[in-house]
Amino acid sequence: MRQTIAALAAGTLFGLGLTLSRMVDPAKVLGFLDIAGNWDPSLALVLAGATSTAAIGFRLILGRRSAPLFAEAFSLPTARAIDRRLVIGAAIFGVGWGLVGLCPGPALAGLGLAFRPVAIFVIAMLVGMAAFELMGRVRPPAGAPASPAPGAGR
């Protein structure tokens, strides 16, 4: 329950930040990506504010605590390799982002502001994510077992 309330607060803060910074508006995002046009550098300032705040917070939290408040352990990414998957995935994501100006956070936050077009994008995005999950089951990443042993828990 505490985890759920904390996540609700975090999601709300995230959405308020996207609204205040206007990153919920795809036109604003495309204005940043359009370096050859009437360039709007706002998105760089959003990233600067977000990464500097998060960097200070991470340093304080991970330097002083061995576990989070409401969970047994920190769940941090462990992958280190800069592989084809990372680069190709980021490139595919970037092309889709540039086509419309929406990425997952602003798309969800935008549902309440322009429901019909944003919902079409969100449904397609969920289908794209589900397709990735299905592909992972058919062709697991290198090093992973082809299928989990019966009864093997995670």
Binding site: L86, F93, G96, A124, L126, G128
Partner: peptide, 15 residues
């Protein structure tokens, strides 16, 4: 919108 959504969803998970 559909094409971009598919690319964003799939690409974000792959990457």
């Amino acid at each position: 919108l559909i094409a971009a959504g598919l690319l964003v969803g799939f690409g974000a998970r792959l990457g």
